[in-house]
């Protein structure tokens, strides 16, 4: 089967999985459904010839599920409260989003067709990557050599996020331990 057919199948599967994850009442099932969607992304990356991304996405999925389940399912397990949101509001949202989808179809027609990328900057990377950087894997050549400052910025963002998480969680621990009201 051609790649496109597989991708149609995987993307349809992911859309169904996301809708199930959002609509199901049980939070644990919802988190697991999101995990399935993420693994679908990983398989799609494999079909798109991106093995590095597939591995990273797989790890991301596992970490995200561990974080979400550890954080919410153990202590504060709950079912989603039955929504008091009016059906009219939901209907209006869905109609608006469908309208956005239909209105955006001409935009997708302007994009280059699937399977024929522009590759203007990347042509240089593909042609000279090995001789310039000595890295056989061109993705790591781009990350760690051509665009190393981007990676530095990424690490900064990640560090800030981790610092924020640690700070927020430590305030809680200090508050619980000291018994003081913040």
């Amino acid at each position: 089967m051609p790649v496109e057919t597989w991708l149609y199948f995987i993307l349809g599967f992911m859309i169904v999985g996301s809708v199930i994850a959002l609509e199901i009442r049980d939070i644990l099932s919802s988190v697991v459904a999101i995990g399935v969607v993420g693994l679908g992304v990983s398989v799609a990356f494999l079909f798109l010839q991106a093995p590095d991304l597939a591995i990273v996405q797989f790890l991301f999925e596992i970490f995200a599920m561990v974080i979400l389940i550890r954080a919410f399912v153990k202590k504060d397990y709950h079912m989603e409260t039955p929504a008091r949101v009016h059906g009219i509001l939901v209907g209006v949202s869905i109609l608006t989003l469908v309208a956005v989808l239909v209105a955006s179809i001409p935009v997708f027609r302007l994009l280059p067709a699937f399977g024929e990328p522009l590759m203007e900057t990347s042509r240089h990377y593909v042609d000279h990557g090995l001789s310039d950087t000595g890295a056989a894997n061109l993705v790591s050549a781009v990350i760690l050599d051509y665009r190393a400052y981007d990676t530095l910025g990424e690490v900064t963002v990640l560090f800030t996020a981790v610092l924020g998480t640690m700070t927020i969680l430590r305030i809680r621990r200090a508050k619980n331990g000291g018994g003081k009201d913040a």
């Binding site: 991708l7 990356f45 010839q49 991106a50 994009l111 990347s122 061109l138 993705v139």
Partner: peptide, 14 residues
């Protein structure tokens, strides 16, 4: 990633 796919091409590892 869909945007960068080229039909019939291999993964970018020499």
């Amino acid at each position: 990633v869909l945007f960068g796919y080229r039909s019939g091409a291999a993964y970018p590892i020499v």
